[in-house]
Design a protein around this nucleic acid. Structure first.
Lengths: 350, 350
DNA sequence: GTGAAAGCGCTAACAT
DNA sequence: ATGTTAGCGCTTTCAC
């Protein structure tokens, strides 16, 4: 029953309460070095009854070790990132390392600030979303002298190590699957992309693959903010009214794709025959929809796990581990119910 | 162009590079005290060109101030908590305080551990979800000597301050609205609740209000884990097959409610006439559904904002601010398209 | 198995 | 406006 403490307790308080030197108390509390079972118990008891909570600030300063891993992501409202996070947490859970999250809102200036703040706590490693950073951010990351794992995207040169997928390739793969299924008049719906590099790269890969087949995006529509499901609905209505002859809609993420799917179903559009749909990410939400939206798994779980493992390996092995790796995972297309696997008999007889 | 630093830079390095004492460098970097514009520039330049990042560990130890606010929540995958978080961040954004998030997975033992870890960094305040904690957690919170704001739930006695809604009352209010609309055979669908106190309290308030009207829950169904949308769908099918005469389904959250709604629409059930539906939380996702699910706003934005403001006020005013407050917000029922406002002409002529 | 001394990188409090 | 001194609460290192 600790009284409303005025001054936080210190090792010294525990030392005095237990009649053991500060040093030995410290050893007990950290399970380090040999301590007799007798003193060990005395100390533990004293610490507990006082309600002592060690001061990690002091500990970190003295030991020059901080068991934190900075995890920097663009957003928490896009479910994709919490999922990566939870994979990271799972791996780190049985280790002394602890993730600490920073959010950038997809903004370079925020990223710089968040990074600076986090590095000033001298974490043991950094896991950061994306492979595009400002020069200042890159300089900080390089200068920090700690393992840095860039995640989600491998289209670029990592500072240290990277784990992700190639979004350019993902866009290409989806375009190829769509073409193979016989769709030809393809619309694109997505976020305004100046900020989201991965969405942009998927778009680029997508158009590139279409171009190779002599095709272009037939129409497109972009959105900003707001409820993704609602936006998907609205955008789908807009683009279909403007270009009723489209036979496929590629969405830059599953949430707007889901909104589009709901719109199509309500309006009696024959999916996937008259109109095919596909999103991106493979979010769990899709399991509950009336039809399974075609999508592409973005390997979030594995990315999080691998990233954490890399940091862990580097922190444990004092020497720099395998640096400079760029691990590209391969996303799989899920056709679901909205992307047929081959052309209808009637059309595109080629 | 900082070389791959071996040893992190210190104030001393900046001091030497700029020919100014460590103390003055420190003053410049913190914008504290009077420094001539000339030296100010010299220092800033030196710091920048070296790529110096201050060591907050040392700073915090020396100043006995840590501008972190521990925010402890059950989960990141339930969108409700990221929303509270983002309200907290917004308020704290223009202040020196910074939120740091810990996740408990709805488990008391995790909460204890997370709390211990966070307190060992000596944060300036704690914002913690829920008002139910283990004795050990309560002792830690009391002993920390910092402002503690318990959020989301006001049904209980706060340790220090609380901001939230009464979930018992929320459950009652929904029951009353449902009864007023003439529904009588009411089913409940929700999470297994040993862990989620707020869901439990809503359930209790709900059944209590039914009891007052001489009614009982006609059937119920519980779930664990999995995709909420999909689960809502499955549970709805199950409960309706078992009890086809139900005329209302009350879901413990909007996601399973949304799944239920989709199921009903697909199966041609007349909502809200033959069957009414309601969820809880007022999540944005609902905006994109074919019909607006009845729900109840859980005031997440305001809760986050108020909580952050309380911590802020207490940290700024050195003296303890208004302690012991228990701010109960009032959720509003949104009838949407799935809960009619009064009985059908035909039934329940009373 | 235990203790004493030194110092981690910074800032408060006092000089000047 | 700038510099000096003395810690902050722990851990490292070395002694016993």
């Amino acid at each position: 029953m600790a009284e409303p403490a005025k001054r936080p307790l210190t090792l010294r308080d525990v030392s005095e309460a237990s009649g053991v030197s500060e040093m030995t108390v410290s050893r007990v509390l950290r399970n380090r070095g040999d301590v007799s079972e007798a003193t060990r118990q005395k100390v533990l008891e004293a610490a507990k009854s006082l309600g002592y909570v060690p001061n990690k600030i002091a500990g970190a300063l003295a030991s020059q070790r901080v068991n934190l891993v900075a995890v920097i992501i663009p957003s928490l409202s896009n479910m994709v990132f919490p999922e990566v996070l939870s994979a990271i947490s799972d791996v780190l859970d049985d280790t002394p390392l602890q993730p600490v999250v920073g959010v950038t809102n997809y903004r370079k200036d925020r990223e710089e600030k968040v990074l600076y703040e986090m590095l000033s706590w001298r974490p043991s490693g950094v896991i950061i979303a994306g492979i595009e950073h400002s020069d200042a951010s890159k300089a900080m990351l390089r200068g920090a002298g700690i393992p840095v794992v860039e995640i989600m995207d491998t289209d670029g040169t990592p500072i240290d190590a990277a784990v992700g997928i190639s979004h350019r390739r993902a866009g290409r793969m989806m375009a190829e699957a769509i073409l193979k299924a016989g769709y030809r008049r393809i619309g694109f719906l997505g976020t305004k992309m100046p900020l989201d590099h991965r969405a942009r790269k998927r778009f680029e890969g997508f158009t590139e693959a279409l171009a190779k087949a002599g095709l272009e995006i037939a129409d497109q529509e972009f959105y900003e903010g707001g409820s993704a499901l609602g936006k998907g609905r609205e955008m789908t209505e807009t683009i279909l009214k403007r270009s009723p002859d489209l036979d496929f809609l590629y969405y830059s993420n599953d949430m707007i794709g889901a909104g589009g799917l709901l719109y199509c179903l309500e309006n009696g559009i024959d999916v996937p025959n008259d109109l095919g749909l596909a999103g991106f990410n493979g979010v769990e939400l899709l399991q509950g929809l009336p039809r399974r939206l075609a999508t592409m798994d973005s390997c979030r779980e594995e990315i999080g796990r691998k990233a954490a493992e890399i940091v862990l390996a580097r922190v444990e092995g004092d020497e720099a581990g395998p640096s400079g790796q760029n691990i590209e995972l391969t996303p799989k297309i899920e056709h679901g119910d909205t992307l047929r696997k081959k052309p209808r008999d009637a059309d595109y007889p080629e």
